[in-house]
Design a protein around this nucleic acid. Structure first.
Length: 207
DNA sequence: GAGTGGCG
DNA sequence: CCGC
């Protein structure tokens, strides 16, 4: 495990190729049940370059009219999100250092030209839980800054099977994807990248 | 309550 | 690629 200058934890090669294939099979089943859709920006309706879906009890969605939010159904087909695959719950348990399961797994599909601007994950009510990110398929150039937009950023390459954890002081760090490196992983037949983002949305209820 | 885009 |  590597700790970057800004404190973000990076686990290179956390998943071996068999584990990546097994996880990809789980995600293919998720996408069959809950198709990828084109998210749009609040107010402007401008489409984002990534395609999205979710699994787990809650999913992160955005559209022109209602903006960024979590909801328990797919915005286009209206069905509940498919369940969180067991191996993602196990991955969370292995790296999150947090005693409650994630409620949402956002599936982002990047074509080789897709990007994600610098942003914070701040639509959750529980910032005590970390954000856990899993990379599959082509490599990307990932940028992480501090908790203000103007803080200096560091960039590094994420490969298929890598896991990144934003937790503790780094939970609200700005981050984004500047570039996909085409033809750098055979996992998706060299076509694009999948990022899985596991998040806790609500604080655990006392029980 | 806007915003994870876009440009030099 | 990174700062604005």
């Amino acid at each position: 495990m590597l700790v970057l200058p800004n404190g973000v934890r990076h686990f290179p090669g956390f998943l071996d190729s068999d584990e990546q294939e097994a996880l990809l099979a789980d995600i293919r089943a998720v996408v069959t049940a809950a198709p990828l859709y084109v998210p749009t920006m609040p107010k402007t309706g401008k489409p984002m370059s990534v395609r999205m879906t979710n699994c787990g009890p809650l999913g992160w969605v955005t559209d022109k009219e209602r903006g960024y939010r979590y909801q328990d159904t797919h915005p286009e087909i209206g069905n509940p999100w498919p369940p969180m695959p067991e191996r993602l719950l196990a991955l969370w348990e292995a790296v999150a250092e947090y005693p409650h399961p994630p409620e949402a797994c956002l599936v982002n599909y990047y074509t080789d030209t897709a990007k994600m601007g610098l942003h914070q994950d701040r639509d959750e009510k529980d910032f005590a839980a970390p954000v856990v990110s899993v990379s599959l398929g082509n490599a990307c150039l990932f940028r992480v800054g501090g908790t203000s937009r103007s803080a200096k950023t560091v960039s590094f390459r994420l490969e298929s099977g890598d896991v990144v954890v934003l937790g503790g002081e780094e939970r609200l760090c700005y981050h984004g994807v500047d570039r996909i490196y085409p033809d750098t992983s055979p996992l998706l037949r060299n076509s694009g990248r999948i990022n899985l983002t596991l998040r806790r949305v609500n604080p655990p209820t006392a029980s």
